[in-house]
Each structure stands twice: as structure tokens, then as C-alpha cells.
Design a protein around this nucleic acid. Structure first.
Lengths: 350, 350
DNA sequence: CTGTTAGCGCGTTCAA
DNA sequence: TTGAACGCGCTAACAG
């Protein structure tokens, strides 16, 4: 019922700076100054202008402003997903940090689909963002080129590229996984299963598996590839993968989960299978969301600096935009949180 | 170490439409058309233009574009919080819906602080958003006036204002809570506790309590106000509130949680207290996040149309922007999901 | 189908 | 301390 001729009713635009000037009996330039450098304006005039602004519900036109000043006061952030809790804290902290500085946050999510991410990069650049936050480092070089050619500063979060080629604010995913693995190895485990997100196009997931592998190597062990399962992130997927791992013979005595929802699922499934945790099987998570501490047994996990990455990414970009010589901080720390879900392997293990 | 003189290094701007035109040997208008209505351009020219665009990594300047066209292709959304899973699905669905239409999403969060929300409204309007999504309906009239005076269409989500004064896309929170309450009443409960978010400035929380109260009234019962606890959202707060409720005498035989994290906490705490659910106490949630189905016992809860609200809000605004005569849909349905956390009250209850 | 011509609303010179 | 004039990059009329 919507014939295509029905377009064209452009909303009445709000008041303009010039109208405000007229109402206040001053020049447009003065109104502009009231907004941008109030100290340069005599208080008497300033209050007249402010009254006019309120009277007209005047809001500056960001487009015009960014056209004239070459800055939009917007910062973009592109996340793999938004609907889970995975990036929630990072997003919240980032929004807070830039919001306090008067910046506005533009977000997008791409469902781990690099093509969609690239599309979003274009869109956000068009929107005129002054800076950009991206997750991880895997993407086509052309995307980086595009960003750089447009003079937009950016940071990659959730990773710490050791080669320092691009500015990163995050932690060493491999080392984090290594911590969890060493913890299990120290307790005597040697047959270890892994539930991971898809490694393709995801350097965090890849690094975590690599870290696990290297921890085993330190002990002269190798990771049995048949015990490495890749799944879409989610607790249901974790349950299913865990069940599968438990059918392998000899059965793994511990399972390292590359993302915490997997671990929740594994723990629930262990309970459903009647497997005692940690007596019969140990489980580790990755991130330490609120649920990890509430479950019984509590989940042993690696705590990642989720909020801090958001906060620091914002702060870094703001200072770059302020013209400061900012260097990204060195890799952030992670912490192994030992709770009840891990223990020595069962005595009768092979 | 950052002296204040260190400003002013404006990034080199990207290529302009005019440069593209020059490289392609056509007029600026033609380049513009290639971008906005490609069908009006002869293929031969179009491909020359596209080549030039790629060559220069040209990205249109959104500011200039919005100045000239009076539309920014950005939509704003302001949420109470972003770091929990509460609005995650709504956000994801909204982003997806508007993203597919080539729009960009600008988000902000205000921690349930109305002043901060107002601030964000101003900021987003300045950014030039074409439309706005807000959660709930409680805010100063001046905010609505500001939005309307600037000609920006908006919707309120997560509520359904019966008086229809403003466009809403959501569900009836009172009715939803009434469902949960009736379910308990039908099983014979009469002494019911409530754990709620703060009612001040939160119409969703208020409506849910009101709904509970009215369901009791239908049975000639009244809600004991000493059994109504308001807390910040969170499972830890749920645990603590639940523990307190369990010390009341006579002890409530059921607890209605106005937000699901409360219910998770209550369930964990019941377990810690050695209280059998549902034999000794019944618990209901609100929203039906993934965890509800995974716990043991499963959580009886009211499933809210989280994704749908995001999707429909986006769709509605897009059609308004397209100049269509769009009316917001009628209130969406909620569904009572009965799982193991509810049952009849203990036989020895008063 | 394509080019020409005007602004869109604002920040920023420069003089006064 | 204030005002006048210019142009940022683009879209939208209008001609051709």
C-alpha cells in the first residue's frame, strides 16, 4: 500500500546559527564563538545568545560544522557482535570515555564477516568519524589503506601485535591461553581438549589455540588435533562440543575453552552427563564474565581487561586527536583466576 | 608532558568528489550521480568514475553531504546501559536493520541517569541523526520538544504507551508481569516477594510492579510492600535481595524478579542457602536470556521480544524517513515460559 | 544522459 | 571584543 511516489517530505529543519544571531542581535560569528570559545565573548552578549539558543531549541548542524572545521567529533567502533556480553564492557567503557570528552560513538557489528566489516569501515568513514576502533588485526590491507589515506587515526583492540606494525590496545592472547594451559599441566593433565571459536579471520581465537599448543610443547607434549573443536560462539555450542569431546577415547581429562560461553555450556553439560567437575574433568574459561564466579563449581578462567581496553582505546584516540604524541600502551595484563572447575586429573587416567 | 600548545595538526583530508571528477574526466555532478542514482549514468562513464574512486580511495564527505541533502543517513539510539546483555539483542537487531538500509547507528548510554540522557540527545542531534530511538518514556518534556523542534522522528521502545501520545514499539510491561504473577497465584501462592530495579525514572520497572500488584488484586490479595525490594540490576544484587526476602516471616513462597539477572542471583542464592526450588520457593525471571534455559532448574520467565523491538524500531523509522505514512505496530506479545523454577507452594506454608 | 550553477550552515580568517 | 566575507564538499535544480 505504499506507492513509490510518496517521498520527498523533508522534515522542517531546526533553527540555524544565523537565526540565533538575529534573535540575539549579534553577528553569526559571535554565536559561533559562544559555542566554541566562550571565553572570547563578553558575558553580556553571551547570555543574550544563550537565551536565543534556548528559545529556539537551537542545535548546531554537525554536518556544516564538520565541513567547516574538518572534524566531526564522532568516533567509530566496529565490533564482531553486539548481542552477547562478549564486547559489552569494552563498548560501555569506550562510549563513556569518548562521551565525556564530548564525542559521539558510532558503532557497527559484522557477525565475524570480514566483507561486512569492510563495508562498515566505508560507511563510518563516510559518516565522517574522526577516529576508528577495530577488533583484532585480520583484514584486507586495502582496508587499512583506505583508513590511512583518509587520515583517520585508529587502534586495534583485543590483540597486541608484537611486531608493532599497527597501534594495538589489548593483551597477548597466546600468553593468556598459555597461562590456563600451564595451570592444567602443572596439575598433571596431559590429555587436553580445546573448544575454540573459528580460527579463520579471527586472530584472537588462533592465538589462543597457538598458546595452548605451545604450553604443551614446553612439556614435550603435543596437542591432539582431534581434540580441537571449532564452533560458533555460544553456550549451546559449548555443550554440544563438550559432549563430543567426552566420547573421545582416551577421554581428555581437561577442556580449555577459548571463549567463556563455551565453558558455561561445558559445565552445564558435564552436570547433565553426571561427570564430576573437577574430579573427573577440569574446565577452563576465558574472559571472566559475572557468571564465572556464580556457578558451582566456580569457573577457573583468564580474566581479560575488557573495560580497560575500551577506556584506553578511547583515551589514546582522543589524545591523538588532540595532537599529542601518543603511543599505545604496552600489552595489558591478564590474570588467571583459579576457581573450583579445575583440579588434578582422575587417578585412573591413562 | 603535553603542553597545551601541541594542537592543530589537522589530518590530511581524503580526496574530494571534484578530484574524482577531474581524474575521470567528467563533471562533479556526474560523480555525485554515480554515487546516489547510478542508473542515471551511462555505464561507460560510470566505470571510469568507479576506477577513479578506487584509485583515490575516495570516500564521500558525510558532512558536506548532509549539509547539501539535509539527511545524514545516521540513526541515533540511546540506551540505559550497554555493558550487560539486557539490551544487546535489541541493539544488534537495530544495527542490522538500519545497517542493511545503508544507515549508520550512533549509540550512547547513560547509566539510568536522565541528565546524561538529555545530554546525549543534544549531542546526537548535533551529530545530525535523521531519527532517534529511546528506551522508555520518562524524560523531561523539554527533551521531546527539542527533538520535535528539530524535526527528528523518534520511537520509544520497551514500552507501549497505552495513551498513544508518542510512538512506541514495545510490549505491555504491566501485563507481562501480571502473567508471571497469575501463574504463581494459579498454583496457590499468595505470599509473593518482588525484586525490582529502581522505579524512579524507569517506567518499565514501575509497570512491572504495578502489574504484579494488580494480579494480586484480582484475587483480592495485596502486595506486601515490605516484600518489594528495589536494587541496581545485577545478579549479585539479586542474591543479596533474595537472601533478605528469605529472612522475612512468614517467608514468601515465591519471588518475582523484575529483571532476569536478579532471578539468576536468586536461584544461585537459593542453592547456597540449601533452599529447594521450586519445592520450598518459586522464582520467576523476566526476559528469557540464554541462561534461563540452561540452569537447573530452568527458570520460569516472561520472554520479551528483544530482537523484534530493535528490528521494528529500525524498520519503522526507515519508513518514516522514506516519507511513508507509517504507524507504529500495536504492542508486541510476550510469552510466559514455564520451566522448573516454579511450582506449588510448600504444603506447610501459612 | 550530462554539465553548470547555487547554495546548504558553519568556522575561520582578517579588519575594525 | 566583534563583524564581514569566504569557502569547506556536496546535492539539486536547471539547461542543454
Amino acid at each position: 500500500m505504499a506507492p513509490e511516489g510518496a517521498f520527498k517530505n523533508r522534515a522542517k529543519t531546526g533553527a540555524t546559527l544565523e537565526e540565533v544571531a538575529r534573535h540575539a542581535g549579534v553577528s553569526p560569528a559571535t554565536v559561533s564563538r559562544c559555542l566554541n570559545s566562550p571565553d572570547l565573548v563578553r558575558p553580556a552578549l553571551k547570555s543574550k545568545v544563550e537565551a536565543a539558543i534556548r528559545l529556539l531549541d537551537y542545535v548546531p548542524h554537525g554536518g556544516a560544522r564538520s565541513l567547516a572545521s574538518r572534524r566531526s567529533r564522532m568516533i567509530g567502533a566496529i565490533f564482531p557482535i553486539l548481542d552477547t556480553t562478549l564486547f559489552g564492557r569494552t563498548l560501555e567503557a569506550l562510549q563513556q570515555e569518548v562521551g565525556e570528552a564530548g564525542y559521539t560513538l558510532v558503532v557497527a557489528s559484522y557477525g565475524y564477516d570480514l566483507e561486512r566489516e569492510q563495508h562498515h569501515v566505508r560507511n563510518l568513514l563516510t559518516s565522517g568519524i574522526d577516529a576508528l576502533v577495530l577488533v583484532g588485526g585480520i583484514r584486507d590491507d586495502s582496508v587499512y589503506r583506505l583508513i590511512e589515506r583518509n587520515g583517520v587515526p585508529y587502534v586495534l583492540i583485543w590483540i597486541s601485535e608484537s611486531d608493532g606494525e599497527r597501534p594495538c590496545i589489548g593483551f597477548d592472547n597466546a600468553e593468556a591461553a598459555r597461562r590456563a594451559a600451564r595451570h592444567l599441566l602443572d596439575m598433571g593433565h596431559s590429555r587436553i581438549g580445546v573448544i575454540s571459536g573459528f580460527v579463520k579471520d579471527n586472530d584472537r581465537a588462533a592465538a589462543r589455540i597457538a598458546g595452548t599448543r605451545s604450553a604443551l610443547a614446553e612439556q614435550g607434549l603435543t596437542l591432539d588435533e582431534s581434540l580441537v573443536l571449532e564452533r560458533p560462539f555460544g553456550s549451546t555450542e559449548g555443550r554440544e562440543a563438550f559432549r563430543l569431546l567426552m566420547t573421545r577415547r582416551p577421554r581428555p581429562t581437561a577442556v580449555i575453552c577459548g571463549s567463556e560461553p563455551f565453558a558455561y555450556g561445558a559445565l552445564f553439560e558435564a552436570q547433565a552427563l553426571g561427570l564430576k567437575v573437577p574430579d573427573e574433568v577440569s574446565i577452563t574459561g576465558f574472559d571472566d564474565f559475572w557468571l564465572a564466579a556464580q556457578m558451582t563449581p566456580g569457573l577457573t578462567t583468564v580474566r581479560t581487561p575488557q573495560s580497560e581496553m575500551g577506556r584506553l582505546a578511547g583515551r589514546h584516540l582522543l589524545s591523538v586527536l588532540a595532537g599529542e604524541e601518543a603511543v599505545p600502551p604496552s600489552p595489558l595484563d591478564v590474570e588467571l583466576i583459579v576457581r573450583g572447575s579445575t583440579g588434578p586429573p582422575p587417578a585412573d587416567a591413562p
